[in-house]
Nucleic acid binder design. Sequence first.
DNA 1: GTAATTACTGATATCGTTGTCAACTAAGCT
DNA 2: AGCTTAGTTGACAACGATATCAGTAATTAC
Lengths: 337, 337
Amino acid sequence: MPVTIKDVSNDAGVSIKTVSRVINKEKNVSEKTKEIVIKSIQKLGFKPNKSAQSLRSKRSHMIALLYNNPNKHYLADIQGGILRLCKETGYNLVLQECDYTNVNLGLEITEFIDDFSIDGLIVTPPLSDMNEFLEHLNQTQTEYSIIAPSNTRKVKSYVSSNDYEASYAMTNKIINKGHLNIGFIKGHHKHSASHLRFNGFTEALKDRGMSLNSEWVKEGNFSFDSGFSAGLELLKSHNKPSVIFASNDYMAAGVMKAAQMNGINIPLDLSLVGFDDSPLAAQLWPSLTTIRQPVEDMAYHAARLLLGNIDGLSEEMDSKEFISELILRESLINLID
Amino acid sequence: MPVTIKDVSNDAGVSIKTVSRVINKEKNVSEKTKEIVIKSIQKLGFKPNKSAQSLRSKRSHMIALLYNNPNKHYLADIQGGILRLCKETGYNLVLQECDYTNVNLGLEITEFIDDFSIDGLIVTPPLSDMNEFLEHLNQTQTEYSIIAPSNTRKVKSYVSSNDYEASYAMTNKIINKGHLNIGFIKGHHKHSASHLRFNGFTEALKDRGMSLNSEWVKEGNFSFDSGFSAGLELLKSHNKPSVIFASNDYMAAGVMKAAQMNGINIPLDLSLVGFDDSPLAAQLWPSLTTIRQPVEDMAYHAARLLLGNIDGLSEEMDSKEFISELILRESLINLID
DNA sequence: GTAATTACTGATATCGTTGTCAACTAAGCT
DNA sequence: AGCTTAGTTGACAACGATATCAGTAATTAC
């Protein structure tokens, strides 16, 4: 038999409504009665019934994670960050896989939200880049926060990483190690990260007075297989680059396999650089030079932004860009003695 | 403004209770009225309000996944299977990470269930092996189903895989390829899978009249690093095995790195076998011979069992053992001409 | 043909909260 | 003092479903 508000109100000698006020941290409760009520709540071990709360108040204390990303480590980190905040706040996470090519996505999500009275959404790439979808969320007054959006102007709450700057910095590092012939494997063109990473690369080349060899630029889709294919293509030509910079670690791993199958020694014959610092990066041999993003922290912050919007918390929080870190490992060598 | 039962009952010209009966597939509704009601429901696009349902009926349509497993691919597959059923049935999945060393785990989970009125649990390894925890669930009359339990006698609903038989079969396969000196890396001793896999291995050796060289058996914990360490130990001795059978792919990958760092060629100098068919297995070079479990299907079935118990569905479903498949790839070679 | 059983149906109470609104008290202002 | 305002409190309705139980219609039994 559960403890209800009524039990608490009897114990504390106040009305049900006053207890409710205390629970919901409403104003206009005197310190004295608040104290009495809190004591009773603790004494009886009262916990408000979430179903009743959401039935009456239309708030479910559930947020949803929208995703359509095959990278399971990435998703697991995102989930981890959100769940950390959920534990702190008593919210609950619901997973919702979406198909970003679905033209009715907006409607389906709206329906999903109504169905479960979801309080808000956390949107991850590549859904973060679907402008008409985001527009739909705005129009339906859905609360949401976004991880790594392409266009931050339209978005109230987001977290992002400095992909462009990190890519620029890594390219500089590669050049500093004496590499003149640099291959690049782009990510999926629907992800804004692909463009940021590529643009950081080309801009660094330009600033160092180097020209882009378009033969050495291949388009992948962030998967191991696409990296493998791109690697095979890049490595079959006579005029090979001395280093390949892949837009993520999985594609770099694909290149590594392609190289090893062709008897090309990494890093002696070919240096290799990835992006993301997936667990894989440290496990390959040679281990992969790459770029680490604080994905888990980003997700945590995105969830904080969302709950801030939902609860209208006093402390306004700001969208934030997180800084990536270059991780130098064995797969990138110095060509200058 | 949402459509309520009342709207439907007005439209159909019946009482709200009758509509409720149709929604809940209760008996004693004539075919004729049922049809009318269903038509009205569809016409108005009525969807029952879950909060109201769970407030009154104590059923939340939420199930929880209990996990404490660092293998993110495994978890993602599990999640995928459960979510597939959730989409079909309108249930909702809540994630709950647990610490299996926590002595108060049972109480905390009970509290969690009460808090969110969770309808049931899906328990994954290594929690599947915590007997006192499962006993607590029985005593508190919690509905649950288990993935890969160690002890199927006490458990009403479970799914398992034939780890023992698969390991036995793989060991036979290894022997058939002419390997006489076989190393083995065990998994985490808290996972029942570790013992099943090891026992399958030793039993196959025995049945083929081969003896176990305990120097070639190392204990790992299913992590890449533990495989790497075990690999270094196994490979430093003069008397090396010709093949190493690791209890999962991550540990096998660790061995591969250890070998490559020591200039040992795989598979020419050393064959390697894993377990699980993680994506990693196909991405390594050489690609890994391993054993595939239908994890996603297992999770789907576990969820079906759970919902069957909760809803008391007419069609009784049975616990089930799923069959694994040997995946033969490059890392295991034939020593016989 | 009447009684007993079974199959349907609906009026109303109920789940445990929050929202509305009115009442009361204490303080501030002419 | 009299009037306004702000702060505090509680009685009661409402959220949208399901549960209970009584009532009516249809079927079966004898």
